[in-house]
Design a protein around this nucleic acid. Structure first.
Length: 120
DNA sequence: GCGATGACAACGC
DNA sequence: CGCGTTGCCATCG
C-alpha cells in the first residue's frame, strides 16, 4: 500500500485511465486531448493522449473519434483515412461542424458530467 | 545519456 | 485565419 505512485509515471496505469475516460464520453459529445488528459488525472499530458490513441489503432471498443484537438480541430491530417472515418462517425452521432470542418465545441464539448444539451 | 519526434496547447504576429 | 515559436512530456534511435 502505501504509495499509490510507485514510480513517477506508469504508462500502463495512465493508458488505462485514458481509455476509461474516452470510453465514458457520451455519444454525440466530444472532448479535447487536454480535457481527456485532465479528466484522466494527467494534466498537461495532452500529447500522451494522442500518442496512446494512435497506439490502439483499430480498437472499436474505444470511441477515439470523440477525441479532438483544441478549438474543435481534427488532429488527423487531411486526406488520411482515419480523419475521414472520424468525421463520418461524428456526423453519424449528430455532431455538427462549423466553418472549415471544425467541431462545434460550444455545442458538443463534453465536460466531466456536464452534458452539453443539443440546442435546436 | 542525448537529440529528434509526435492524433497537443497556448501565444504572438 | 494561417503560420511560427515555445512549453510539456513520453518514446525512440
Amino acid at each position: 500500500m502505501s504509495s499509490r505512485r510507485p514510480s513517477p509515471f506508469d504508462a500502463d496505469a495512465a493508458q488505462d485511465r485514458i481509455a476509461a475516460v474516452v470510453r465514458r464520453i457520451p455519444l454525440g459529445c466530444v472532448a479535447t486531448y487536454g480535457d481527456v488528459a485532465a479528466a484522466a488525472g494527467l494534466p498537461g499530458r495532452a500529447r500522451m493522449v494522442g500518442r496512446y490513441l494512435g497506439a490502439v489503432d483499430g480498437v472499436d471498443a474505444l470511441p477515439w473519434h470523440r477525441v479532438i484537438a483544441a478549438g474543435g480541430r481534427i488532429a488527423l491530417p487531411d486526406g488520411s483515412a482515419s480523419r475521414t472515418t472520424q468525421l463520418r462517425r461524428l456526423m453519424a452521432e449528430g455532431v455538427t461542424l462549423t466553418g472549415s470542418g471544425r467541431v462545434d465545441l460550444a455545442r458538443h464539448r463534453w465536460q466531466r458530467g456536464v452534458l452539453a444539451p443539443v440546442l435546436d
